[in-house]
């Protein structure tokens, strides 16, 4: 029993990392109609910024994380201003490929700025364990779970209950009409890229202590987040988050009780099979096209 709880707690921690990344992907998809393949790479870049601030400049880890969030917001705004804003007339498929191009640029620049050696980033809360029904979880793990939930809760509150959220939702449902109604859609899109960047670096900071900070630190997270978005469906903001937690829990359970080598791969196959029966994901609806 205690191992089971241990596995579940671990899964919630990875689940919240995936959920933050998935939320970052869906926010951009809903506002800009782009599946952002560069999400992981940009998050990786900003995680390197945090690591640089902490290791080389010797700044406190919390302040370094804050610095990373600021840099991610700035980078998100720059991406929107320099690239995304000029792609209004570009074919939707070509837009995804633009994000692939952005990914290449970031992957090319990062080693020049930060070197190729793997770096270490410590936990936000260095020590301390909490025992829950015989299962151990570090304070840092708990912090990750609750901070993830807090960030997501805050975002959903803003989306559903405030005027800003209304602007975002109306942009998401029909950009042209929203513009006619006086919604500043350009600002909304820019804000979405900034928020998505911040979510990306938070997931990066949470992932970093588990491995080392390299160019490919967020590849796995991004892959799982993309699959979570597909699993949850592209039509809602909460679907991908639910999908991410399902993947987090399912993956760890399969790794622990199924096969320690093939667990993740089995999960992907199960999800692909699930999509045969529900092609639009858990919460997705079929979009009826008018001719």
């Amino acid at each position: 029993m205690s191992t089971f709880i241990q596995v579940i707690l671990r899964s919630l921690e990875t689940g919240s990392i995936y959920a933050l990344a998935a939320l970052s992907i869906i926010i951009i998809f809903r506002t800009s109609n782009i599946v952002n393949f560069s999400q992981g790479a940009v998050g990786m870049f900003n995680t390197f910024v945090v690591t640089y601030l902490f290791n080389t400049m010797g700044i406190n880890i919390w302040l370094a994380a804050l610095g990373g969030i600021v840099s991610s917001i700035l980078l998100g705004i720059v991406i929107d201003l320099v690239i995304i804003r000029h792609t209004k007339k570009v074919h939707p498929e070509a837009k995804q490929i633009i994000t692939l191009g952005m990914m290449m640029i970031v992957l090319g620049i990062a080693p020049i700025l930060f070197g190729v050696d793997p770096l270490r980033l410590p936990k936000m809360i260095e020590t301390g364990n909490l025992s829950v029904l015989g299962a151990d979880i570090s304070y840092n793990g708990l912090f990750n779970i609750f901070f993830g939930l807090l960030v997501m809760g805050g975002l959903f509150f803003i989306l559903q209950k405030t005027k800003i959220g209304l602007a975002v939702r109306s942009t998401a449902s029909n950009e042209y009409t929203a513009k006619l109604m006086g919604v500043p859609t350009k600002t909304v899109t820019m804000g979405a890229w900034a928020v998505a960047g911040a979510l990306g670096v938070i997931s990066g900071i949470m992932t970093a202590p588990m491995t080392s900070v390299t160019l490919h630190i967020l590849d796995d997270v991004q892959l799982n987040a993309l699959i979570a978005v597909v699993l949850g469906g592209f039509q809602t903001f909460y679907g991908p988050v639910v999908g991410a937690y399902i993947i987090g829990v399912g993956r760890n359970l399969l790794l622990f009780y199924g096969s320690s080598v093939w667990g993740g791969q089995i999960l992907y196959i199960l999800i692909l099979l699930f999509l045969v029966f529900r092609p639009h994901g858990l919460f997705g609806k079929k979009i009826v096209k008018k001719v």
Binding site: I83, H86, T87, V90, H91, A94, I97, I98, L100, G101, M102, M103, M104, I105, V106, L107, G108, I109, P111, I112
Partner: peptide, 20 residues
């Protein structure tokens, strides 16, 4: 030689926007 990956990325974006 270090920048070839970056150049490819820039080229993709420029080609898509200006030379589809």
């Amino acid at each position: 030689s270090e920048m070839s990956y970056v150049l490819n990325g820039v080229l993709i974006i420029l080609v898509i926007i200006f030379y589809p």
